[in-house]
Design a protein around this nucleic acid. Structure first.
Lengths: 126, 126
DNA sequence: AATATTTGATTACACATGTAGTCGCATGTG
DNA sequence: CACATGCGACTACATGTGTAATCAAATATT
């Protein structure tokens, strides 16, 4: 089985999302991207990168003078891990319950629903 | 608009789930239920209840000698709040992306998929 | 070369969270 | 009534997280 993925905090997710778009990147590059959505200081971003590296969620190239960082897991892997623990905590493990709630609460648009139906159709006829 | 629901931590969710099943309950009653799933000491449960009360997620009846606790929000309200922030963090806000991933990953059974389809059908014909 | 700047390493600090323990008063018990 | 027990109030303490700042060495600039 794939090794357990460490917890990724909310702020760390922002950083990961940037690294999943493009990697490797220097701390400065990551900071530039991040600052489009947030007002975090470069030092803050650097701390997050260091923590992610320590947690072994990102890797670091130290061969160049200025280090570059890259993800050690795919976005899908991390999403799946987070979602599983989230669903367990909040919905007692039943993804379906969540979807049902969202469908009933009109959180999904007509269009979303159509798309979901089409995805489910494809899946079932496969 | 409904006031913003405070963050509920993982351990606190366990407590809330017990209170949503039946309320009000004394700390002892909650502890008994909780200890079926966990090995938390009564003091731990009490601390969680106190924190939830402080956060105003649970209310406290202090009229009796032994206090009783009860939820101030429904489970649905809390689920919705948590899910919204979760989806935003992990899936960039698109619930659909998550469902798609889970459908494709076979996290949902054939049966689940059938049920979802039927729910979507009902929704659409409404 | 002297100085300014960049960058990695280390440290800071408050608040949240998991996981309890202590203390003192109100109550039940013998 | 004397004492044991239960419960609320407060305290504890390590680790995680958000949000950086400081310091020293390497590098770029003038």
């Amino acid at each position: 089985m794939p090794k357990k993925i460490p917890d990724i905090s909310e702020a760390e997710w922002e950083v990961m999302n940037v690294l999943w778009e493009k990697a490797p990147q220097t701390a400065n590059e990551v900071t530039s991207s991040i600052q489009k959505h947030t007002d975090w200081k470069p030092k803050t971003v650097r701390t997050l990168l260091d923590r992610l590296a320590k947690k072994q969620v990102v890797g670091v190239n130290t061969d160049q003078r200025v280090y570059t960082f890259f993800p050690l897991y795919t976005q899908d892997e991390c999403r799946k891990a987070e979602t599983q623990s989230f669903i367990k905590r909040v919905y007692g493990g039943a993804l379906k319950s969540m979807v049902v709630q969202f469908i009933q609460d009109d959180t999904l648009s007509e269009k979303d629903i159509k798309e979901l139906r089409s995805i489910l159709d494809k899946k079932q006829n496969k």
